[in-house]
Design a protein around this nucleic acid. Structure first.
Lengths: 195, 195
DNA sequence: CGGATGACAGATATTGAAATCTGTCATCCG
DNA sequence: CGGATGACAGATTTCAATATCTGTCATCCG
């Protein structure tokens, strides 16, 4: 059937990711992506209304993939303190690994992320909701003091920005980064527990 | 006496600041600064070994000026919790005001600050030392639990990066920024007090 | 003699013409 | 008929020639 060779949005996204990885955000063109797919660039525009929309979709996909491991941790049973610590450490480790193992690709995504503030805000909300879930578990279990979980979750996210916001990526390779993270975690944990 | 018209480093710095404000970091040249001073650009090089050094000195001066109000708060007597809150709020307010009232000048300083990581690190150390001073007072007064003041101070600084690091300046104009700050402060205060 | 000058070489930035890219659409193909 | 194509116009980027800037230094001036 003809649909065997049908061009799908998914194929385009996957190839776009390859091309971005290879050429970088400044050089990757729609024509490059179409060439890599063996189609004309007009066909790409059948699936995405603009280059910007395509780049946004690539970013979305990337963020989605990066965050599903975290959702699993948030949904686990068990002590909230340990879970929140692991959740934050996993987030930090994932970001740091991406930033250090392939700095060019990471820079590519930093550029893309800078272009789509709306998409990023959604993802921040998703992440904060996961923290909130763990915090609420903690309160229910009596591990944490009873405080409004929404603002507390947001505060935890903001307080740890140094360890997950790409703007601070340059600091992640410092040897003391892990120590700094643990010290901050101790302070936050005390704050969550309260008196 | 001849020294009435003597060209001083201070005059150059002050004029350099004007020229940077007027032309922006990309366009301000040494020749522009010399012209504004009414001297040849060679004379500027008698006081600063390079354009980079001159820009660094301007940045240093700017950071110094921005931070002396904070040193006063750190040195005050009185309750540590209130003092630390005021110190952080003052830092946030000063940054936010600069960012909002004159975005171009702020962008200029963001560029300069990005050029001189060493200078910035020194200033971060100065600021952390001020936090540490307040934290130590708090422990001495029995307001805060007894924890290593160095790491705690650094944690407080990192945790509040969202409200003082220029990388987050775009978020400072959000109406919820003040709320976010107070929520984070509550969490940190609980963490400092401990059980 | 201490300090300012401006000509100069090499590095960096600007500019505008040419090349390429984005996004559209009339046309074609299975 | 649904989907792919590639020619096209206007926007954007590249590139090389040109202009400007940085940093040095022999010279000058009070």
């Amino acid at each position: 059937m003809a649909t065997d060779n049908a061009l799908t949005a998914e194929q385009i996204l996957s190839t776009a990711e390859d091309v971005l990885r290879r050429f970088g955000p400044a050089k990757a063109t729609v024509v490059d992506i179409a060439r890599a797919l063996g189609v004309s660039h007009g066909s790409v525009y059948r699936h995405f209304p603009s280059k910007a929309a395509l780049r946004e979709a690539v970013t979305q996909r990337w963020l989605d993939r990066a965050h599903d491991e975290l959702a699993a941790i948030a949904a686990e049973p068990g002590p909230a303190a340990e879970r929140l610590h692991r959740w934050l450490a996993t987030l930090f480790a994932a970001k740091r690994q991406k930033a250090l193992e392939d700095p060019e690709l990471f820079a590519t995504y930093m550029v893309l992320v800078g272009e789509v503030s709306g998409t990023v805000e959604e993802h921040v909300e998703t992440l904060v909701a996961q923290i909130r879930q763990i915090v609420e578990d903690g309160v229910r279990r009596g591990e944490f003091r009873d405080a409004p979980a929404g603002p507390v979750a947001r505060s935890v996210f903001l307080a740890t920005a140094h360890f997950h916001d790409p703007a601070h990526a340059a600091e992640w390779s410092r040897p003391a980064a892990q120590e700094d993270f643990e010290a901050l975690w101790s302070l936050l944990l005390e704050g969550l527990r309260g008196r």
